[in-house]
Design a protein around this nucleic acid. Structure first.
Lengths: 133, 133, 133, 133
DNA sequence: GTGGTCTAGACCACG
DNA sequence: GTGGTCTAGACCACC
């Protein structure tokens, strides 16, 4: 499992980490009972401050996606996959709604937007953050 | 010409104002030489801090879309429409790219996204800017 | 509205702040629409690091009890009172259950426990943290 | 004599072990001169890290409740029962005081608390330590 | 002025 | 080794 963050992105690093883990669990790349990297390890790998990772993990714990095994680390909960699929949908929908609202108030039609999606989609792969498939 | 802002939106209020004016000019709802409301009037109408309107107008001035008529107010420049059409495209594209990047990293396909657009599109009008009809 | 924290307590400072605000809202000492002290002000008053206050406020925001007014501060939400009453109950119940479980496994009866409550209750006022009534 | 720990409890595992032994001695389920299970055996039975058991035993030794019989194991001291009865009282009182302080600062009265005790008490047996009957 | 994010580094409890 | 909390101080966007 590999996590990648884009430090120059407007979306906060801790949210990027959350998103990556949510998406990985939703896609069954991370299974319940599996442990996530330790705070220190992930921080070192991403070259960010450990506190930033702590924040991401704690938010995932509050969301019932991770649970702490004291002294050992944190692992995916049994409910994780279900919650992550819900959350994934919510994340994408939220961002999508913002974009659509903007498009609508700019006077575009649904057809215009779909054309734009098809135009932009292939262009993503060149600049995307990781996952090749 | 009516401007509406959603204070709870994640996009900053001054950006919303900019967007609304840009879109209005691009759609010829505001013509070159026409004047925009005074800072005080618009602030009162939108119930926002006057500084917020100032910031929006300043940015539009720097972009060559508004120009100051000393002692009178600000009006749309001759180049306004052209620049606004460009800028409109840039705004929509930017927001759309963010959404698509998220969708892609969530593992969705272009088809999934288009379906989502068609699902969400009609729903926009009912909640957009609070105007029900 | 006054908040007090006991730095020597085993319960984290940010949780104490959360609890105090939850209790205040549940008791209608803080009404919806009312603003809480600014992060910096409260930090100065409690002589704690601003980040500690930030953490408390953010958790209350995620719980739907506070909402951010950008550039202005944070205020109690309309749903705040309802959520705080629920949360107050949950907080007390949680701590109480731990105590009762301990008492039960120590072989005490319900009567023993109630007697203990009546014994200890008056003693609280001398060492308690604030609220005189 | 059976010891049970709840790994998901907020109270540390080593403290749970201490408590269970203290309560057993106080209730004469474990008599002076009787030996406690070996570190390895108890750790295996509870599925916890042996160091955790070591820590519990060490603390009980420091408290004069257990003593080492070199090469043989550890046994309950002659003073054990007396000290455990004192300690049992202290443990229960401490936990109870925390709960009461919370209840008081939440604005509950002594009557409210006693009602809560009577409500919760029967519920304990069904979930306590996982033993259903 | 407001909150939001991030870094650096410390100390603690737990296993 | 693990996570949890706290401090100090920086920089940013927004109003």
């Amino acid at each position: 499992m590999t996590i990648r963050v884009r430090p120059e992105s407007p979306v906060p690093i801790y949210e990027q980490i959350i998103g990556q883990i949510v998406f990985a669990v939703a896609a069954s790349d991370l299974a319940p009972g599996e442990m996530v990297p330790s705070v220190r390890d992930l921080a070192a790998e991403l070259v960010v401050n450990p506190n930033t990772v702590v924040r991401a993990y704690q938010e995932l714990e509050r969301a019932g996606i991770l649970e702490t095994k004291r002294g050992l680390g944190m692992e995916i909960t049994a409910d994780g996959p279900k919650r992550c699929r819900e959350r994934r949908r919510a994340i994408v929908l939220l961002r999508m709604r913002e974009a659509l609202r903007e498009a609508a108030s700019a006077g575009l039609s649904a057809v215009d937007v779909c054309k734009m999606v098809e135009d932009e989609w292939p262009r993503l792969n060149s600049t995307r953050n990781g996952q090749a498939k």
